[in-house]
Design a protein around this nucleic acid. Structure first.
Length: 383
DNA sequence: TAAACGTGGTA
DNA sequence: TTACCAAGTTT
């Protein structure tokens, strides 16, 4: 149970919400970060930019996203432009950012907004939630930040802030519904007259400053209420924080440790002919879906180099494989990978094997190459 | 419901 | 260095 502010301080009459929403917004007005997708204080955010940034920011740091966001809005200034682009162009621009299903869903979402919503983002959480790549968090974030709807998106930052503020003992992810309810208490009251679906609701929605409240919690989580060594002395909610009062704030949120994935091994084949490289496109679904790669063997926990070599592409029997010294290592979310690299330089560039193609090495930077493949190619082409 | 899904930063 | 974390969604 959250502490009752009324009982906490008997000498003051506090609002039902304990005054936390006001403290939070006051802090935000003084400390809000300037970010590429944020308009100046007080200005309405562009739904397209909010959506694009929210998709990119899923499990991805602000610093990493910055340059990608700028590239995207420069090339595709609105959702209509993005929906008119080819999926391949979008994947190429996304290469290196990771979680590539996001790029596919991004494109599919832009197409759907054009086709089903007249090129305008719906301003209702439920309709947003129905679009590709938009889950519960992102729907609430867009509704609150771009449209002023009175709803509270809950991301990893807010889970941490709220679980500490109220000392939520239930572990994640079971605690999500409880944290969602507690987080919503940090929204301003809005207009008592407002009702969902009512035209008047907009006035109440805007009054609650839901978007600013959510972003305030996220800024708080990233700069003050950090995972380790939180700067509680600077926190606008510190007097209200249950875990801080007990001194065990760093132990929240409660979470079961996750098991590490098993190392997988395989071989990658860097085949050149003059200034061209042999590549192929991965299947649409699954790991690195739709991205470009050099041919590789399977990646398995129990894989030896000899078995890998038997899976080399067949190049009219002319290929002389050279085992490159060392290995390329890469860590995915759910398993680490170790690839040995074989190279071959063939004299005459015959037809590429089934499902593969030759690309000029000079244009590789324009390919939809995930970072693991950039590492492999750099290793194979290096000294 | 739990596992799949990238990459880079931080301690 | 290992381990965790980052504005989660999909299946």
């Amino acid at each position: 149970m959250p502490p009752s502010s009324a009982t906490k301080n008997k000498n003051r009459i506090l609002p039902e919400d304990g005054g936390r929403p006001a403290l939070l917004l006051d802090w935000y007005d003084r400390h809000r970060r300037r970010l590429p997708w944020r308009p100046p204080a007080g200005e309405r955010a562009d739904p397209y930019r909010v959506w694009l940034s929210e998709i990119m920011l899923q499990q991805t740091g602000v610093k990493t996203v910055g340059p990608y966001f700028e590239k995207f809005v420069a090339r595709w200034p609105d959702v209509d432009a993005l929906g008119s682009a080819s999926l391949d162009d979008v994947l190429r621009m996304w290469a290196g950012l990771g979680y590539y299903s996001r790029a596919r869903n991004l494109h599919a979402c832009a197409v759907a907004v054009r086709r089903d919503h007249g090129g305008v983002f719906p301003d209702i959480e439920e309709s947003l939630r129905a679009l590709p790549g938009i889950g519960p968090y992102t729907a609430a974030a867009i509704a609150a930040i771009a449209f002023g709807r009175r709803t509270m998106p809950v991301d990893g930052n807010i889970e941490r802030v709220v679980s500490r503020l109220f000392a939520v003992e239930e572990p994640l992810p079971q605690a999500k519904p409880l944290i969602q309810r507690l987080a919503a208490t940090l929204l301003g009251a809005g207009d008592a007259e407002s009702r969902a679906g009512d035209v008047k609701a907009r006035a109440g929605d805007v009054k609650s400053r839901a978007g600013d409240s959510a972003q305030a919690l996220m800024d708080l989580g990233s700069s003050i209420c950090t995972p380790k060594k939180p700067a509680c002395a600077l926190c606008p909610l510190n007097e209200d924080c249950v875990s801080r009062a007990r001194g065990d704030q760093e132990t929240f949120p409660r979470k079961a440790p996750k098991k590490a994935g098993e190392l997988r091994r395989g071989a990658a084949f860097v085949v050149t002919c003059g200034n061209e490289l042999l590549v192929r496109t991965r299947p649409e679904k699954g790991l690195l879906g739709g991205m470009t790669e050099v041919p590789t063997s399977d990646w398995r926990a129990a894989q030896d180099d000899k078995a890998s070599l038997t899976q080399a592409p067949v190049l009219n029997g002319v290929a002389r494989w050279h085992r490159k010294a060392g290995v390329v290592t890469h860590v995915f979310t759910h398993f680490p990978l170790e690839l040995v690299v074989y190279t071959a330089n063939i004299p005459a560039r015959g037809r590429a094997p089934e499902g593969m193609r030759w690309v000029p090495i000079a244009t590789l930077k324009d390919e939809a190459l995930p970072n693991v493949m950039r590492k492999v190619i750099a290793h194979g082409l290096g000294e």
